[in-house]
Computed example of a mutant assay.
Amino acid sequence: MGWGNIGRAVRRAWLSWTDADRTVAVAVCAAQLPAAWLLWWLISDAQVDNYRVGYEPLGWFFALVLAPLVLPVLGMVQTVAQISPAALLAHPSAVRFRGPGWAWHLLYAVVFGAAWAALFAALWDWPFMATALAFAALGALPVLGVAFARRRARITGHRWGAVGVWGSGCFGCFGLFVLAFGGAALATAVGLIEEYEPPKLSAGQLAGVWRGVDGAVLRLEPGGRAEFAHLPAEPTSFDDRRFVTCDGTGSWFLDTEGRHDKYRADGPTERDGVVVRLDDGCGQRTYWVIGGTEQEPELFVPFGDLDAPDLWILQRD
């Protein structure tokens, strides 16, 4: 193919991808992101330890307020990085090799998604296969949305305006969000999404040295004695601080019934924990909840309001 033919093919491809197509692509990309984020959040949250901590209502409020401003920008980024380049390659491929243009568009969207996944895997160690599948899924709906808009325009003789596109995108965003939530709930109920299960450790497995940030050290002796340095503890009843830090000795025992856990809730989320008592009156006894995994266990305690706590985590030395 000569340079003239290449230039004509590029011009035809560019003309085949109109401003109306780009508007639809951006709107669909933006509309699917809340549902995609919800699925990612529900799946990842179910498989990791959330330390029984609530979620800051103010953060959700800001997310809702900023979403109408951020989503169109993210939709435009995805369109420029994945959907538009795929469209420019799809048209000449459909002309030369035949086949529906939307199928070629979908194929190239998957290819560009895989290319971005490879880049992220190389730069930030993202899992390539999972990232490529995610980009492929995120690219499919915009491609099909553009194909649907084009078919509708051929049948009706006119295209959606910007108001119609974004209005439909808002309804579609809500529908996808509800569908994602229902699908995740159903998958969890039937066991397709496995929920996080904290490890069950014996007193012998708990014995040893546990370390946290700011030099916190807790040594649990097999006989039930404890030594600690810079260890946070529940403040005394007349102290208005969230926690106090203590050095010294004390005692500990494994609690498998939650009798000493003031945050314990009835139901399947109950946790075993380690009760640490201090000898010198620096603070009250503290219930360290067992978390992490069997291979990498943790002890943690939230101090203060569970919606915005001071979370301390100890890991085995």
Rank of each mutant, 00 (worst) to 15 (best):
G182I: 10
T256E: 08
W37H: 12
A180K: 03
R96N: 04
V80N: 02
L38D: 00
F97H: 05
A36K: 03
W312A: 03
Q78L: 10
L38K: 04
A86L: 01
F181N: 05
P57T: 01
A132M: 11
L311E: 03
V165F: 07
P235G: 08
R11P: 00
F303N: 02
V26G: 03
L74N: 03
I193M: 07
F253I: 00
W40Q: 07
H158T: 06
V10N: 06
T286M: 13
M129N: 03
R241W: 02
A25Y: 02
W104V: 01
L58F: 04
W40I: 06
P309H: 06
V275F: 06
F181I: 00
A229L: 13
G161P: 04
V276S: 04
L89T: 10
W288A: 00
I155Y: 15
A226K: 02
Q284M: 14
E296M: 12
A233M: 15
V190D: 14
A31Y: 04
V28T: 03
L42T: 07
V48T: 02
H158F: 08
G75W: 10
V301Y: 10
E296V: 15
S251Y: 05
D310T: 14
L179K: 12
D21P: 11
F135R: 04
A30R: 01
G139P: 03
A9L: 05
V244S: 09
W3Q: 05
V165L: 08
V80P: 00
F61M: 07
C282D: 08
A121Y: 14
P232K: 03
T18C: 01
A147K: 01
R219F: 11
E221I: 00
L74A: 09
Q295L: 14
G273R: 12
G169A: 15
